[in-house]
Design a protein around this nucleic acid. Structure first.
Length: 550
RNA sequence: GCCCCCAUCGUCUAGAGGCCUAGGACGCCACCCUUUCAAGGUGGAGAUCAGGGGUUCGAAUCCCCUUGGGGGUACCA
């Protein structure tokens, strides 16, 4: 990450802050000072003066998914950006599971997330035990539910310093408060009912058997920070909704609390996440400060949007990575597409591998506005990547889709690996997704094919002509024998047949195409016939003649 | 409601005050290639840079306002 043009930012008035310089500040400065959260022009000096420090400070970033659903396209994109940032900087990419929503978290979702991040090639340097592999990293455990002691200690510290207090309000009371403020058209905010309870009052609640949640005191003031994507952001603490619950009655931490305790404990230097967290960032900064932790640098990524420009959701879009995999999108295309959603190289390159992306990644070029997920463009990229894969690689990726076709009964048998490789020249350019393979070549692997009589008759022909055409083709192929049954012999022979009778070759070919495949759109005809085999080709031609005779 | 963020072809984007008559890609249309379908090639339509004010000799680019959109506002993450 060199200083200076073309893509590095300036300091004062710049919307982008050099990540490495801030990294050194965040990681090396002791807690406290408001200046830490609001780097100003003095950062220029720090930035240049601290280059050696910045160079020595290892970037540590994380992806912190919540196992409350399968891996989401948005989570994958955030993971990718963190991965690219870490790898580009020679830093560490960490995976942490935020499983404190006990009601919605499941081991199955956890597995889905891990498996598919791995599938995308986003290997983490530190993370939980998974898939039979042991936990990696010196900052574990990497599951929040296994880190409860840390949250408890942090909460106790805040309690002891009166930065937080026990709150005995019930859900009903809170709901009633909320409703009241809503009706009065007031901004929602905690009433502060428990903020100034005396020890006696607390004891009284406890005696009633009421157990408290813990609330963090939001002190008045303006919280400011310099976002790597958005520049300087200021939010008045009065807009934060009042004192914040950080620990539930059941003792589990809430997101805003766990994320801060863990990011600090894990030495996270840069928090790269979706823009949906931007408004909550002041809460995190206030907690970092109250706990005397260094504040990391933030980068809020633009959201991925549904077609109607709302935040991409399961309701309106296909969001599970596994569903894209099931359709036959390849990892290279998904990674390539996701990287270019909200970021660009500044060049006209479009086809980029994960390694290419690592080399070119630069947070200064991250887009600020949200981006609609464009499936058409993804498909185009997928086709590009499919065309670039090596034969064996593509064949082995295709195999499961063919096996699935067989399992579903759409074909009677799946081709061997060698057969699939042989198919490649005629299918490679016809696959927007791997899952299209069944439609494309399925006719080669069905035993009983009866073509539709109407399809057998080309537009310019009538049924009698079609029948005659197929019959002469059948005769010619029979006569040519096994030796003449090659792509190069078949074409001139059949073309000659058509010419001799004054038919358009294309019409004859179409009739044959439908006869052998049942379809009007197929891979190239003569290659298809060879793939089908002479015996079955003849059999199907005979069958078609019979169909037209009926 | 309140707070925050955002704004260049339908979509993803290039653009760092003169290289902009706004470039590329996807999609769309036409033509070429061609046995169908693709792929590929060539060309085309498509953005008064959301609108209005400034600043400047000069603004897509800087500032302000308006409008529009989005996000946040939980004992969800």
């Amino acid at each position: 990450m060199a200083c200076g043009p073309p893509r590095s930012s300036t300091c004062c008035g710049a919307r982008r802050i050099r990540p490495s310089s801030i990294a050194s500040r965040a990681a090396s400065e002791p807690a406290d000072s408001a200046a830490r959260a609001t780097p100003t022009c003095s950062a220029t000096v720090a930035a240049h003066g601290a280059r050696t420090i910045a160079a020595m400070t290892t970037v540590r970033v994380r992806i912190a998914p919540s196992p409350t659903g399968p891996l989401h396209i948005g989570t994958a994109r955030t993971a990718l950006f963190n991965y690219l940032f870490a790898r580009h900087a020679g830093g560490t990419f960490i995976l942490r599971l935020e499983d404190t929503d006990v009601a919605r978290s499941t081991p199955e979702f956890e597995e889905d997330i891990l498996e598919h991040l791995h599938w995308l090639g986003l290997e983490w340097d530190e993370g939980p035990a998974a898939g039979g592999l042991p936990e990696r990293g010196a900052f574990g455990p990497y599951r929040q539910m296994a880190r409860r002691d840390l949250y408890r200690a942090a909460a106790e510290q805040l309690l002891a310093e009166d930065r937080a207090y026990p709150c005995y309000c019930t859900a009903e009371e809170l709901d009633a408060d909320r409703k009241l403020r809503e009706e009065a058209k007031l901004p929602s905010r905690y009433s502060g009912r428990c903020a100034a309870l005396t020890p006696d009052e607390r004891a009284a609640f406890a005696a009633q058997g009421r157990r408290p949640a813990i609330r963090f005191r939001i002190e008045p003031g303006v919280v400011a920070f310099d976002d790597m994507v958005r520049g300087h952001v200021e939010i008045d603490a009065s807009a934060l909704g009042g004192d914040l619950v950080i620990v539930r009655v059941d003792g589990t931490p809430l997101y805003h609390f766990g994320v801060v305790v863990d990011d600090a404990a894990m030495g996270i230097t840069h928090v790269i996440r979706g823009e949906d967290h931007l408004s909550n960032t002041p809460k995190h900064i206030l907690l970092f400060r109250a706990l005397r932790y260094p504040v990391p640098v933030f980068a809020h990524l633009p959201l991925i949007l549904n077609a109607d420009r709302t935040k991409m959701s399961k309701r309106k879009s296909q969001t599970a990575v596994k569903d894209y995999i099931a359709e036959g999108f390849v990892r290279e295309a998904l990674v390539n597409y996701l990287a270019l959603l909200g970021w660009s190289t500044g060049t006209e390159e479009e086809i980029l591998s994960l390694d290419d992306l690592v080399g070119r990644f630069d947070t200064a070029a991250i887009q600020k506005g949200g981006a609609i997920f464009d499936r058409g463009r993804l498909e185009w990229l997928n086709g590009q990547w499919i065309r670039r894969l090596a034969d064996d690689d593509l064949a082995s990726r295709l195999a499961p889709f063919l096996a699935a076709e067989a399992a579903a009964g759409r074909i009677d048998r799946a081709p061997s690996p060698a057969d699939i490789v042989a198919l490649l020249p005629m299918v490679r350019e016809r696959l927007p997704v791997l899952g299209a393979i069944g439609e494309l070549v399925g006719f080669l692997y069905v035993d009983d094919l009866v073509p539709d009589a109407a399809l057998l008759v080309p537009k310019r022909w009538d049924a009698a002509t079609a029948r005659a055409g197929l019959a002469v083709a059948l005769a010619a192929i029979t006569e040519a024998g096994e030796a003449g049954f090659t792509k190069d012999d078949l074409e001139p022979s059949l073309r000659g047949l058509a010419d001799a009778r004054g038919w358009k070759a294309g019409d004859l070919f179409m009739a044959i195409r439908v006869a052998i495949s049942g379809r009007t759109a197929t891979p190239p005809l003569f290659e298809s016939m060879v793939a089908l085999g002479r015996a079955r080709t003849l059999e199907r031609l005979a069958r078609a003649v019979a169909v037209l005779a009926a």
